[in-house]
Design a protein around this nucleic acid. Sequence first.
DNA 1: GCCCGCGTCCTGACAGTGCCAAGTTGATCT
DNA 2: AGATCAACTTGGCACTGTCAGGACGCGGGC
Lengths: 207, 207
Amino acid sequence: MGRPKSTRPYHHGELREALVATGRRLLEEKGIRGFTLRECARRALVSHAAPAHHFASLDDLLAEIAVRGYQELTAAMETELRRATDAPAARLVAQGVGYMAFAAANPVLFQLMFSREANRFESQALAAAAKGAHDLQVAAVASLIPRASADVKQGMVDFAWASVHGFITLVLEGQIGEGDTPRALKSRGVSMLAAMVETVLRAGGEP
Amino acid sequence: MGRPKSTRPYHHGELREALVATGRRLLEEKGIRGFTLRECARRALVSHAAPAHHFASLDDLLAEIAVRGYQELTAAMETELRRATDAPAARLVAQGVGYMAFAAANPVLFQLMFSREANRFESQALAAAAKGAHDLQVAAVASLIPRASADVKQGMVDFAWASVHGFITLVLEGQIGEGDTPRALKSRGVSMLAAMVETVLRAGGEP
DNA sequence: GCCCGCGTCCTGACAGTGCCAAGTTGATCT
DNA sequence: AGATCAACTTGGCACTGTCAGGACGCGGGC
């Protein structure tokens, strides 16, 4: 909101949010290694040193962007969940679809969130945001195989998450489905999810 | 090999290999974003512009390092394969173990190989090197479900790869098994592999 | 109504980066 | 021996992140 950009008051007013927003666009445009604090500042129409008052360093800005990413990832999963039926299997599949849809729509951000670099940030906010998505997955698996032991449940959470994450990751990097149309790719993703759910069910003792 | 370092002849003689070697170490030390051509040159005891005569750009050097990575990944899978029995299921599991062992031993290199950045290199050599590892996976799945259709086989190759790749990726990023001992982690990995094999078998019509 | 504090932003500078240009060295071939 | 030429050098450019110090202007206290 704030003032019209044409006047450009000395005090930007919402620079922090502006940096996160433009930074996110810049990230998707240039990739992680092409991401630049100065270009960010330029696009937000402030001087090159202005961001320092809101983010201690470049990594600090990236960390904040990653946190937003996790929140949006969780939201994407929840959105897909709302469209699904009550059947636990359908809900687990829906979450997987939401997960992959978010990754496909924000490939570089997704890579940032799950990159070793992001881990170096070590921020609690980031860990908390990541936990949100993880909790959803745990809940979905638990309601799919309620009678399974805790050990089996954890194993199946690992398995489910790894399948979904690995699949979309390899797709984004062009290692899977190189020549496929987006449509064909999605159908491959969904049938992969179906196979995964089946195994979870069996391991959980639900025929 | 070559001359003693102390003399340091004007012509290094094996600068290309030296850059790949030190570059790889530097990569693992500093991470992808901390990787620097000049630091590489410094460690190889040459001037900052010397690498240009062997690699057109920083990305070019990274691409070469990634190619070596793929070759080593393939080798790691083959090594584990040699230790395995003839049972197709055991062989597929063994390959997965080799894959994960390589990733765990070279986390940053592994990230580089499967990063969006690496994809921009677009080199044929890189694609060919990546194909080596992929072919192994195809063969292992094919011998596990010989009677399945080509479509199902391809789907299961993707699935097997995705689950292995996803699991080790999430582990490396600390999203799975944060507090686990290495021993516990490996057992989680192996049971994930078991679930994967089960899925492949069922999808392939082998009870 | 005025002034002053302080958060917000600015300009300027420094060391470090990738890459390009032009010069220097030394191994190799005729 | 002299010429050739790839391998290496120094130097410079535009760019980066970060730090220091100064300019601005919104708010609260008189």
